[in-house]
Simulated assay, not measured.
Amino acid sequence: MLSEQSVPVVRATLPAVGAAIGDITELFYRKLFTAHPELLRDLFNRGNQANGEQQKALAGSIAAFAGMLVGDPGARPDALLARIAHKHASLGITSDQYKIVHRHLFAAIAEVLGDAVTPEVAAAWDEVYWLMANALMAIEAELYQRTRVAEGEVWQGMEIVERDEQTPDAVSFVLRPADGGPVRPFSPGQYVSVRSELPDGSRQIRQYSLSSAPGRPEWRITVKRVTGDGRPDGEVSTWLHSRARAGDVLDVSAPFGDLALADGGGPLLLASAGIGVTPMLAMLDHLHTTGTTRPVAVVHADRTPADHAHREEHLGLVAALPGSRLHLWYEEPGRNAPDGARTGRAELADVDLPEDVTVYLCGPVPFMRAVRGDLLRRGVPARSVHYEVFGPDLWLGQE
């Protein structure tokens, strides 16, 4: 909770800070990486820095957090904080790094806003920062404790025991601990980070959903090669597609992620698009292996049947669940589309939405925004809709 003296200051200056937040975050990262080039080399996603998405995500999270503090001073935005904290834990972020961020962020604020940053304004926004940072550090400490690792020590060697080409641009890897020990437990829907040493010596990190149920002696991840759309090819996905083979050992984090299938017996809607199918596969696999009787509606959208990663497994898991129903959409179905598949983009008009339905979404942000909008218009409470974003969360604070 913000102090009484800081609430009016933050409220009065939020429009100015919000208007300049893009310039502030851009300058912040430039200062940060000048002072600590190892962070760009070995921690931050260089692709997301180059295309500006990380700057937008940081700006969105700061603005959303500050807006919540002044809009509802007695509340704490737990959903916003949890999503960031899980991502931080999967990267092995440590509490001392928040001091580094603070130093360069406030230097950027002072430089961009100039004389507008009075001692009173600086003190109020310093309070905002440390409220957010301390809340994140507390959640991350709990995550590390729950995972039974020391702060930041999330990495272990995982051997590739199987590689399967799923589609022309998606490959799956079955992994087991290289030391012969058991895999760590996880909840269906969570992800792991993979840290890859690239030809230039950098160690870049990316997150991939675990795409099979927990309780097995191995994990599975599915990696889509990032290409096209006017962007540079993905560094890590390209490396994994071209270089990673059975017998290789990858540096993999413990599982994290707040998109985790909750226990219970209520109805579910699992909606995905493209490679967003991966956490849904883990959920469906878990529901099947545990013999659930929960009503499950499954919506999936893809470009073509050939682009639908794990297509046969996906359809088979849905068919094996009693009372489940599949709603399948392809932009270009062609001749090989499964029976019942429709042409175009996913719509929810034919999807039954019981009053107590719990919804899980994963896929491109435009897809999730459209689906969530349909759900809210049909009366599904916002608290019942959970999502996962691959990459920087440009939706922070908007749910």
Rank of each mutant, 00 (worst) to 15 (best):
A320V: 02
R294H: 07
V298C: 01
T289D: 09
A306S: 12
L328M: 09
L326Q: 14
G291T: 01
H300A: 04
H310S: 11
R325D: 00
G291P: 04
L284N: 06
H286T: 13
G291V: 02
G323Y: 12
L326W: 04
A301Y: 07
P305Q: 11
V296L: 10
T304C: 14
H288L: 10
V318S: 00
V318L: 00
T304Y: 13
L317N: 03
L326M: 15
T290P: 07
G323N: 15
H310C: 14
V298H: 00
T292K: 03
H308N: 11
G291Q: 03
D307Y: 02
A319E: 15
R294Q: 04
P322A: 09
L284S: 04
T293I: 13
A309S: 15
L287H: 11
A297C: 07
H300M: 01
H288P: 03
V296G: 10
R325P: 00
L317T: 01
H310V: 08
H314D: 14
T289F: 06
P295E: 10
T304K: 12
T290N: 04
S324Q: 13
V318Y: 00
L284T: 04
E312H: 04
T304R: 13
H308T: 09
P322C: 01
T304A: 15
V299S: 05
G291C: 05
L321V: 02
E313C: 07
T290L: 03
L328K: 10
E313A: 10
R294N: 09
R303G: 11
P295M: 05
A306T: 08
R325L: 00
L321E: 02
A309P: 10
T293R: 15
L326N: 09
H327V: 05
L317I: 07
T293C: 14
L315P: 06
H310T: 09
A319V: 01
G291N: 03
H288R: 13
L315M: 06
A319H: 10
L328P: 07
V299H: 02
A319L: 03
E312T: 05
T290A: 03
E313S: 09
V296P: 05
L321M: 08
H288G: 04
L284Q: 07
L326A: 13
A319S: 15
H286K: 06
H310K: 08
L326S: 12
S324R: 13
T293N: 15
L287D: 08
V296E: 06
E312W: 00
H300R: 02
T304G: 12
L284R: 05
G316Y: 05
L326G: 08
S324K: 14
H300Q: 05
A319Y: 01
H310E: 13
H310F: 15
R311V: 12
D307M: 04
H310N: 14
P295G: 04
